[in-house]
Design a protein around this nucleic acid. Sequence first.
DNA 1: CGTATTTGACCGGCGC
DNA 2: GCGCCGGTCAAATACG
Length: 224
Amino acid sequence: MNFHQNPNPNMTHNHFGGNIDPLMDFELSDFLVFEDGGVVLDHHHHQFDSFSSQSFPSPENNFVSSNDGGGGCDDNYGCYTDDQTINSMMIGATSTNTNNKNRKNKMDEVGHRVAFKTKSELEIMDDGFKWRKYGKKSVKNSPNPRNYYKCSSGGCNVKKRVERDREDSSYVITTYDGVHNHETPGVLYYNQMPLMAPNAWNLQPNHHPSHSHSNSHSHSSSSS
DNA sequence: CGTATTTGACCGGCGC
DNA sequence: GCGCCGGTCAAATACG
């Protein structure tokens, strides 16, 4: 809780690439990124541990998109691997899933999806944004509940989903939906990123001055 | 008192 | 058409 309050934004801002706060047992194990509903997984394909910083393989070439198989594929959003793919990162960016049959454009509206699988006892990792929890749901295949967060920033409708791994409750799967269209409330320092978590974060907040119709107005409040 | 969080209810989609 | 599942909202509550 109260992870949104950063008394000292210039202090050690625990991030994926920056300094890991010694307090939290933060350990990046898996990192999946998929856009436009593209599902990424490797497991028995490749071990993407080479592109530790900028050499991202073309997802259209090396990744399996809009497909599933091994790993824990259960959600309608994607699959994630585990086991031996530790310390591997997967970036999937399917250039608009062309074969989205009747998959509805739900994901298309979102346009961005990032999933992190980390080994942490705490699911609340301060990524520099303020998140307001708006729901909790228990998934059928998972003994652990799933938490839904929404960006507290006005105008920004990025959603975040946090759930623990079905098999290993030690792992936390955080899925981000959407792109922040505002500056980070806190000071985000991802200049160096000596670790494996590259500037993947950098490609998220594409500050596009011309994008005004992203994923906002979808269905404000149709219910009630 | 204000704000964030909690928990159940409600809704939409999909499968059968 | 009904049931299941996942996602979201909203009233109530807890906490600061």
